[in-house]
Design a binder for these strands. Sequence first.
RNA 1: GCGGUCAUAGCUCAGUUGGUUAGAGCACAAGAUUGUGAAUCUUGGGGUCGCGGGUUCGAGUCCCGUUGGCCGCCCCA
Length: 437
Amino acid sequence: MATFQPLPGFRDFYPEDFTRRRHIFRVWRQTANAFGFQEYDAPVLEQLELYTTKSGEEIEGQLFSFTDKGGREVALRPEMTPTVCRMVGARAGALKRPIKWFSVAEFYRYERAQKGRLRAFSQFNGDIFGEAGPEAEIELIALLIQCLAGFGLTKDDFYVRLSDRDLWFFYLEALGFNDEQSRTILSAVDRYEKMGDEAFKSYAEVHGAIDAALKERVLGFLKIKSLAELEAALAPFNSGKLTARLADWRKVLSGVAAMGLADFITVDLGVVRGLAYYTGFVFEAFDRKGDLRALAGGGRYNNLVKKLGGPDLPAVGFAIGDVTTGLLLEQRGLMPTFVSAPDLYAVIGGESERKAAFADIQALRAAGYRVEYPFKELAFGKQFKAAAESGAKLALIYGSEELAKSIVKIRDMSDRTEREVPRDQVLAAVRDALAGG
RNA sequence: GCGGUCAUAGCUCAGUUGGUUAGAGCACAAGAUUGUGAAUCUUGGGGUCGCGGGUUCGAGUCCCGUUGGCCGCCCCA
């Protein structure tokens, strides 16, 4: 029994695990590339203050943070948003707008692990900077959907819930709540799905019992599930802010619909997300069955770049996690089984034949072919068995009989046919044989 | 941070009311088989039964602690 294990919440990636992770990353990268996003990366370790500035001092309890040997307070990154804001902020003046960036990176959070949540996990992060209008949301929501649909997931497997923190604040303001009251109500809205009426308890404690009629209007609002309902709910108000937000909602929903993605998105004002820093649309992706944690989440954060020391730059972004995505793909049978097979397997007679084989093996590998051969001298029968098990398309036979004739025998492993080619034409013959198959 | 539950080979698991040297299948390796393939047979390596303590003549089995996994709560950037 091994004495040493990975730390809690951390994973080893044995080759078969690694191929699954690589598949996820590959789909994400291909999708982001198709959407015209540029990939970046950044240090795993950042100043602790980058995170406390964004999220408050309390966040430190959930970070892998420590003092380095130079006395700096540092933390392993728990998310990408502060980092990308720092990077974009530093060069905002020189970057062509809109700034469309993505990353695939590992993050670390000091939290108790549970289903779909580990202490080390990977995320796809996609962000758009420099676009204040809902065009950025359309682009990102489409990217999010395709980042999941790219695995073969359909509208029956997952969906995106769209909400809006600004709309909530404007609505609550129109109902007569002040800013502080609105914040308390929003945190209740955030929990309402889980807790029901209990969620409003803390509001009563701080601001006194909520007016029953107003509470009904809040509950009615959070249950809104369509644009039509939203329009109806806002009709009685004569507020320029609400009218403008409604126009943005129409733009986002019609844009997504025009891309043929309407079935993937639902209006759901019950989604607020805990974050104080979101400033407009927020969205989350969930599996339809609802037995997994959120697949992805994001929204608009127009104040953050400035808050972290950069220019005033509007921004929208989201992240997809690898853990929940992987669980969903396994659940739906969409995680392919990966076979890793060489192109060629060299069957080698003895030590003297090995020298000749090595020369060709190296030349073939330099040409890009994946070639394997047995390390130790083995009976031919064993070598053919090994060649078959490896999945190689061709076997190259370097026996004494072949080398005496200055030829190599090439055996097609699928139809068991063999042909002889002169030693100096092996590369061309291999190229020819593999091109056809 | 809190609660529940589990822990025997790389994997899936068996192991009787506590009883001698802890087993199987799969996987891995060798041989039967030194010029041609997924079969079969034989054999082998691999375990301080998560770790530590206690009870007992005797603990994989019972008790306590601890570490880790899983599930849930809090939180969820």
